[in-house]
Simulated assay, not measured.
Amino acid sequence: MQKYLILYGTLGCHLCDDAERVLQTLGLTYKTIDIIDDNRLLEKFATSIPVLENTEESYLFWPFNETQVTTWLSEQK
């Protein structure tokens, strides 16, 4: 079963675009959430985006590549 992934970022963020390309290359299904729409998320991730979260509320902070995402996901229970 594939884990549910969320990619936190914002429009106009070239690093967020790069992170999306990594996820797309891996063929992963994910939801994007723009942190600008939520003050709590903006405060939490403003200087960290892009950030990838899975269903266990585990975070993978940028920079990451295909190998790092695959390893991170395999380490999640």
Results as ranks from 00 to 15, higher is better:
Y4L: 10
D37T: 15
L52P: 04
T25S: 11
L26P: 06
S48Q: 14
L7G: 06
T67H: 12
R21V: 05
D34A: 10
A19W: 10
A19P: 02
V22Y: 05
Q68S: 15
G9N: 05
A46E: 08
M1R: 09
I35T: 07
T71P: 01
L15D: 12
V69F: 02
Q76V: 09
I6E: 02
L5W: 04
G9D: 06
R40W: 07
Q24L: 12
K77N: 15
W62L: 05
L23F: 03
T29G: 11
Y8S: 03
F61G: 00
Y30S: 04
W62P: 00
K3F: 07
L11I: 11
S48P: 00
G9S: 07
L73N: 09
I36A: 14
R40M: 07
N54S: 07
T47P: 00
C16D: 05
P63Q: 05
Q24N: 12
R40N: 12
D37N: 14
Y4D: 11
I6A: 01
H14E: 09
T29A: 10
G9W: 13
L15C: 01
L52K: 02
V22R: 03
K44S: 07
K77P: 15
Q68L: 13
E53D: 02
G12T: 08
A46Y: 08
L26C: 07
E56H: 14
L73W: 08
T32A: 04
D18K: 14
E53C: 12
T29Q: 13
D18Q: 15
V69M: 04
Y59Q: 13
T67A: 15
E20T: 11
Q24I: 08
N39D: 13
E57C: 03
P50W: 14
L15G: 00
I49S: 12
T67M: 13
T55D: 13
C13Y: 06
S74R: 15
T67N: 14
Q2E: 11
E66M: 04
L41M: 11
F61M: 09
T10S: 12
L5M: 06
L42D: 02
F61H: 13
S48Y: 06
I49Y: 10
L28R: 03
M1N: 08
I36W: 14
Q2G: 00
E20I: 11
Q68R: 13
S58C: 11
Q2P: 15
K31F: 01
Q24S: 08
D38V: 07
T67Y: 10
I33T: 12
E66L: 05
N65S: 09
I49H: 10
C16M: 06
W62M: 03
F45K: 04
V51I: 09
V22I: 13
R40Y: 12
T71C: 04
F64I: 01
E53W: 03
E20D: 06
K77S: 15
L5D: 04
I36S: 14
L26K: 08
L11F: 13
I49L: 10
E53G: 01
Q68F: 00
D37W: 05
N65T: 08
Q24W: 01
D37Q: 14
I33Q: 11
